[in-house]
Each structure stands twice: as structure tokens, then as C-alpha cells.
Design a binder for these strands. Structure first.
Lengths: 208, 208
DNA sequence: CCCTCCATTGACCGATCGGTTTAATCGACT
DNA sequence: AGTCGATTAAACCGATCGGTCAATGGAGGG
């Protein structure tokens, strides 16, 4: 075949692919070098030969997934100008994110990192670009508006990420996605009204 | 000692305690009958003798933790009348929740349930009372207000739970709690302004 | 006093784990 | 022809896993 890649590259690809799939469907507790290698149709010794261990392979899988998703988000959000457009566009991609299990990858590794400081450090390192990206995007969209005083982009970015992590977890408890859809819908309905939050607060007519 | 409980009861207690602790600090992947039993200072066969297996013991630990937290939430939210009081009170307890690792228990089991349908079913069963509780509370607090048309209590309950699950996960990436605190603060600052959302939406002065 | 019942113990089972090693093979480049 | 990296199957290591089982212990009831 033209453009033949260097040898071993395809094996690495298949291992990364299989690692992501295994982590998604079996969870960290069910993910081992042997299981991954079997899913990749490859000898399990190659996990160590190519990646040096199971955890580095899982991190490579996270990196792969993260790059793909980041590209998708950047493209989809590049033209966004208003908060409601932002929420709508982000919701759309994020649904695909969830179905594809990309966030589950991340969440499983966060869970695993609880007991493994060196693994957690790697996870944290990989979360930073996402926080920065969300913050930059929010800043770009609402930066100049009065809303930004009430909702500092940095804090709003934290809240958005918090929300998205939660949605993924919630999804696992919500087989038919009814509740997840309701939450997406709520966010979409609220976004166009967000600027109302900046109005002067009328006097409270408390009862009693 | 007066009021001697039936034999084996103390052993069960210690196993439940140790199971929760282990799940919190070692994650599901690091939690085994032997590890739990060692932490409890008890023979590992007793895990199977008293609970029938590791997963049932972990579910018992979740139940224990869940009952305690539910009681605390009910007491703290019983007197709450406004949305801002609700958010403030809930934030307070929830901070303790996070520090105590109660949500980590839950999250780890959700993660583990991905690959174990029968375990997931048990987790879902145990999530329902929480969803109901949050929904009842929100309904009670904003039920009569105009806000309820914009934010149906059921949907707002889903959103709140989503948010809280996310905060817990986010916490693991936020060692010094700076970002977590920012998110709590944002929620607390926003709650008193929520009723602004129900105002009539003024005409948009779109540029161009 | 003995007997029964149940909690508890430690040994044991087969299986899997992460990781290493070895010897053999294979294909591509020089 | 020879070299080198990729790959394979297999054996091996020490450790752990979930789970079982027969033997022990002790406390209460007859």
C-alpha cells in the first residue's frame, strides 16, 4: 500500500483503540493488559513493549480521544457568538460525546486516580487544556457583556465542566436518557434568558 | 456491657465501615474482600458469611452512608422556604458530603456498574429516593412561584443532582478546592437572582 | 455437664493479575 | 546474506482475586 506507515504503528493504533473500548465497557476494574490485547487481537506482551505498561496505554487512549473531541468542539464552537448559540452547540456535541463514551473514559480514569497519585497527576494535567478551552470560549462569547460581571468566565467555565461531568455520570443511571434530555433542554431554554439575571433586583415582597 | 447486641452484629458493623472506607480511598478497582477484611481486622471469609459477597457488602455500605446523609439533608432542609436558602443550606451540607467521601462511594459504584448490569440495577434503585427527595424539596420551595413554570421542579431536580455528581468528580481534579469553591459561590450568588429569569424578555438589540 | 448453634478461623481451590523473559519467526531494509 | 525491529507463543514469577470448606471456638439452653 502507498504511504506505508512505520512498522508497529498499526499495532499501537489497535491497542489504543482496544484500550479505549475496554475502559468504556468494562470499567477500570475490568481493564487489564490481557483483556486489551485480546480485544486488539494482539499479543499481550506488546502492551509493555510499546507502551511500557497498562496505565500509560490508557493515558494514550485518553489523549487520542481528547484530541479528537477537542478538535470537534473547536470547530463547532468557532462561529458561536451568543450564549444561547454556545449552549445549543455545546449540548449537541456533548450528546455525541456521551454516546461515544468519551467522558466515561475520563471519568473512569479520575476514579482510578483516587488511589494512584501518579496517575491522578497525569489526569489533572490532561484536564487543564479543557478548562482553559472552556474558559477561553466563554470569555469570547460573553466577555464584553454585563453578564460577565455576574458570571465571571472562569467560574462559569468551572460550572460548565462540573455540569458536563455530572451529566455523564447521571447518564449511567438513566438508561432511556429521559432525564438527561430534560437537563439538556433546561439548559437550552435558560440560556436565552441569562441576561435577565443582570437586571436590577426588585424589592422582595416577603410574606409576613 | 448492657444491651449486648446479637453476636456478629459488631463484625457486620466493622465490615460495613471498612468497606466504605476502602471504596473511598482505594476505588472500586482496589477494593477486595481481603482488603476490606484486613481494614476491619476480621477474617476475609466473614465477608461472604455475613454478606454473601463483595458487591452486596459494598451496597450495604452505600445504604448505610445514604441513610445517614438523607437524614442530615432532611433535617437541614426542612425549614427552608426560599430558593436562596435552599441553595445555601444544600451547599453547606454538600461540602461536608464531599469531604466525607459519601458521593465518591456512590460514584465509584456507578462506574463499577457500567460493566455489571445487576450491580447497576441496584445502584439505580438506590438513586431513586434521592431524585424523589430533591424533587419534593424543590417543589416545596419554588412550587407556587412563577419560577416553577420556567424551571419545572422535576427538571430542576435532575439538574441539581447532575450538578452535585459533577462537583464530586471535579473535586478530584481540584486538590485545593479553589475551583470547587468558586462553583459553590457562583450558585449561591445566582440563586437570589433566579426569579429575574421569569421577567419578560426585552427585545434583542442584535448587532448588524 | 453436655450439646447445639453460630461466628470465626485458616487453609485451600482455580483463576487472573502485571510484568518479564526466552526462543523463534517474520518482513523490510542494506 | 545479514541485520534489525516487530511480533509471536509460551513459560514463568509472586501476588491477589472471589469463593468454599472443614475444623475450631465459645456462649446459651437443656
Amino acid at each position: 500500500m502507498a504511504g506505508r506507515q512505520q512498522p508497529g504503528e498499526e499495532t499501537r493504533e489497535r491497542l489504543i483503540e482496544a484500550a479505549a473500548e475496554t475502559l468504556r465497557t468494562e470499567g477500570y476494574a475490568g481493564t487489564s493488559a490481557r483483556v486489551i490485547a485480546r480485544a486488539a487481537g494482539v499479543n499481550s506482551a506488546l502492551v509493555f513493549y510499546h507502551f511500557g505498561g497498562v496505565d500509560p496505554l490508557l493515558l494514550a487512549a485518553l489523549d487520542r480521544s481528547s484530541e479528537q473531541r477537542m478538535r470537534t468542539y473547536e470547530e463547532a464552537l468557532a462561529g458561536v457568538r451568543t450564549l444561547e448559540e454556545l449552549v445549543e452547540a455545546a449540548n449537541g456535541i456533548y450528546r455525541a460525546d456521551i454516546e461515544g463514551g468519551h467522558i466515561t473514559l475520563f471519568s473512569e480514569l479520575v476514579g482510578a486516580g483516587i488511589a494512584r497519585p501518579e496517575l491522578r497527576a497525569e489526569i489533572v494535567k490532561r484536564a487543564e487544556p479543557w478548562i482553559d478551552f472552556v474558559e477561553r470560549t466563554v470569555e469570547r462569547v460573553i466577555g464584553g457583556s454585563p453578564l460577565a460581571r455576574l458570571l465571571p468566565p472562569r467560574e462559569l467555565a468551572y460550572a460548565a465542566i462540573t455540569f458536563y461531568l455530572g451529566v455523564n455520570l447521571f447518564t449511567h443511571l438513566d438508561a432511556d436518557r429521559t432525564r438527561t434530555d430534560a437537563v439538556f433542554g433546561l439548559a437550552a431554554r435558560l440560556a436565552p434568558r441569562a441576561r435577565l439575571l443582570t437586571m436590577r433586583l426588585p424589592r422582595r415582597h416577603e410574606k409576613g
